[in-house]
Computed example of a mutant assay.
Amino acid sequence: MSDLEGWPGSGLSDEELDVAYNVRRKAGPELFERHMARYREMSEQAVDGLPGHPGIAYDEASGERLDVWGVGDGLRPVFVFLHGGYWMALSRDVSSFMARALDEQGVATVVPDYTLAPEASLEEIVRQARAAVAWVYRHGREHGLDPERIVVGGSSAGGHLTAMTMVGGWQDDVGLPQDVVKAAMPFSGLFDIRPITRIYVNRYVKLDLERAAALSPALLDAGHRCPAVFVAGEDDGDGFLEQSRLFQPRWGAGELMIVPGRDHFDVVLDLADPESRVSAELMRLIRR
C-alpha cells in the first residue's frame, strides 16, 4: 500500500509532483484571486433572498455547521457540496454558488463547513464530511430534504471527501444504509492521495504514506458503487486530470467528463449555469 508505483506520482521528482498538483501556482496570483472573488460574489448572489436554513450545527463533536438552501413545498432531492481548498482553506460562505440554479430546478443545496487542517487531521475532516451526510439522512425531513435522494459533490479536496462518502466501510458504523449516497459528482478529485506526502500541502495535513493510503478512496473497498460523473477541466493540473482518469474506470459505475476551456478553479462554477453540460449531468444523476 505504501508504494506509489503505477499511481499518480510514480516516477516523478518532488519538483515535478509540485508542478502537477500546485494548481494555484499554475493559475498565477492574479487569476487565482479573480477565481476566489468569483466564488464569493456568485455565492452571495445565489443565496440572496433564497429560502433556506443557514448555520445549522450538524456535528456535536466538532460544532461545525452547514447551510441549507432552496427549500420548497414537500421534500426535495438534495445536493451536498463539499468545498475544496486542499483541506486547509475556503468555507461554506464561498461555496453555495450553485444554490439558486438548483433551486430553480427543484433541488435543495447543503453546504457544510469542516474544520480545516492543520487544526484537524484528515481523518477528522473525513469524519465530519460523512457526519454531514448522516445529518441530511437523519434530519433532512425536518428541513425539506429527501433523505432518499442525496447526491454528493465537491471540488479538489472536496472531490476527495466526496469519494470518501462514496466508498464502503463506514456506513454501518454510523447507522446509515450502504446506499445513503445515491450518486456523486467529484470535481478535480484526489483519489489516491499518497502523492500529497511529497508536496507542499503535507506541511499542513502531515500525512505519512500509510495514513495517506488508508485515506485514499482508490485503495478502499468500493462497497455499493453509486452512479458518478468524474469532472475535471481541460486546463486542470496534470495530477488532478490523471487522478480522475485513473479512478473513474476503477470505480466502474461512472463517467469521465473533461470540460473544454475550464481550469481547476472555474470548472465547478458551471454548476451555477443551468445551461451548462455539467449542470445537465448533475440533474441527470439526481433524476435517475
Rank of each mutant, 00 (worst) to 15 (best):
E44A: 02
D59N: 08
Y86L: 08
Y86F: 14
D14A: 15
I56L: 15
P118D: 05
G52R: 11
F81G: 08
L75K: 10
E33Q: 15
R38E: 13
V110C: 09
D93M: 06
G63Q: 11
S95L: 11
I56C: 08
E33H: 05
V78Y: 02
H35D: 07
V78R: 11
E104N: 01
D93A: 11
G63N: 01
E104D: 07
F79L: 13
V111S: 00
R40A: 10
M98C: 03
D18I: 10
A46W: 03
D67C: 12
G106T: 11
L50T: 01
V78E: 12
D93W: 10
P51S: 09
D113W: 04
E41D: 12
L75C: 03
F97G: 01
G52D: 08
R76F: 06
S62I: 05
R25E: 12
H83W: 02
Q105F: 09
R34Q: 14
Q45S: 10
H53K: 13
R92V: 07
G52A: 08
L66T: 02
E41G: 07
A101N: 01
G52K: 07
S91D: 14
V47T: 13
A37N: 12
P29C: 00
Y58V: 12
L75M: 08
V71K: 11
G84D: 01
A20W: 12
G49K: 02
A37E: 15
M98E: 11
H83G: 01
L102I: 10
A108K: 03
F81I: 03
Y21T: 05
G74E: 08
K26V: 06
M36N: 09
G70C: 06
T115P: 14
D67I: 00
V23K: 00
V71R: 10
E119L: 13
L102T: 09
L82T: 01
L50P: 09
V107E: 06
P51H: 10
A101H: 02
Y21W: 15
W87L: 05
M98D: 11
L116G: 05
V19W: 02
K26Y: 00
A20R: 13
F97I: 09
G85W: 04
A101W: 02
N22F: 06
L17W: 06
A117D: 03
H35P: 03
L50E: 08
D48N: 12
D48L: 11
D103A: 15
A89W: 09
R38I: 02
G106K: 04
P112M: 12
N22E: 04
L82M: 12
S62P: 00
L50K: 04
S95E: 11
A89C: 01
A46Y: 02
D103W: 14
P51I: 04
G49V: 04
F97T: 05
L75I: 10
R34K: 15
Y39H: 04
Y39L: 03
S96D: 05
A120S: 15
L66Q: 01
R24C: 06
F32V: 07
A99H: 07
R38Y: 05
A117G: 08
Y39M: 07
N22G: 03
L50C: 03
G49C: 07
Y58R: 05
